[in-house]
């Protein structure tokens, strides 16, 4: 070991401050209401606003209201997968135990959101485009994302030794992250039936402010809701691994647990 810590080491030390599952449980309890309640209030506000108080589109009529659920789900499908990829780097490089548990919990939530994105998109496409589904680059790349989520869910639970599952699933998640830029830029690189993004970093949104605000409120609400559900599931996951380690080391109470993922409980 060198005398001056490298950047990787310092980053690792920073991550490990929050790797301790006991510390995470205490943080999670405090964090939970700050996620849950704003998520609920913002989502309900945004959905009611979008459904009853925002204007209908000049050519799409009221079906444009599907946007207020479709777009937040699409955003979360991609950013949920991005979170999965970040957990995978933490897991592969720093062997971060909490990142492994987080990856286990993000997967199913992300898959549900992606499925909702595809379903609501289909429900929007039928009356507007005239078809439930078309194999264009945007729709296909999001379908691939859905299968990546399913593969991750299966892989991370597919091994008797959870550590091997974490490793394999992390590699899959990182490899699949290639799909994220493809989804983002599919509507620019190729011609598609799906329209390009209305909200971009460059230029004004090509959307009336009367529609933009409820959309932003919905997106923020859904994002906080996603975080709230993941934090709640992760708290449960941490407790479950604590239960497993208690059950697997029967007569060793009072000593530090040495079993697997949540080894540094007492640290």
């Amino acid at each position: 070991m060198s005398a001056t810590p490298t950047l990787t080491e310092r980053a690792g030390a920073l991550f490990h401050r929050y790797a301790n599952p006991g510390r995470f449980l205490r943080l999670g309890v405090k964090l939970q209401p700050w996620l849950t309640w704003p998520a609920l209030i913002l989502s309900v506000t945004g959905l009611v606003w979008g459904l009853f108080f925002s204007p209908a589109d000049w050519q799409q009529g009221d079906s444009v209201r599907i946007m207020y659920v479709h777009v937040p789900c699409a955003w979360l499908a991609s950013s949920g997968y991005f979170a999965l990829a970040v957990c995978s780097v933490l897991s592969l490089v720093w062997r971060h135990p909490l990142a492994d548990l987080a990856a286990v919990e993000i997967g199913p939530v992300g898959a549900c959101v992606t499925a909702t994105c595809l379903a609501t998109g289909s429900l929007w496409g039928k009356p507007m485009w005239g078809t439930w589904w078309v194999w264009d680059a945007r729709l296909t790349s999001v379908l691939v994302l859905f299968f990546l989520y399913l593969g991750h869910i299966a892989l991370i639970r597919g091994f008797d030794d959870p550590q091997r599952g974490y490793r394999a699933a992390a590699i899959l998640a990182l490899a699949g992250a290639v799909d994220l830029p493809i989804i983002k830029f599919s509507v620019q690189w190729w011609n598609t039936l799906h329209q390009p993004d209305s909200i971009t970093l460059r230029g004004a949104p090509t959307m009336s402010h009367a529609m933009l605000w409820p959309l932003l409120v919905c997106t923020l609400g859904f994002t906080l809701g996603f975080a709230a559900i993941v934090v709640a599931r992760l708290r449960a996951g941490v407790m479950e691994s604590r239960i497993r380690s208690l059950l697997s080391s029967p007569r060793r109470n009072g000593e530090a647990d040495t079993s697997g993922a949540v080894g540094e409980y007492a640290a």
């Binding site: 959905l47 459904l51 009529g61 009221d62």
Partner: peptide
């Protein structure tokens, strides 16, 4: 509202 069944199904899916 136009296309009401599609809108209700979408919102129902998200809330469900």
């Amino acid at each position: 509202m136009t296309h009401l069944p599609y809108i209700i199904t979408s919102y129902g899916l998200a809330i469900g």
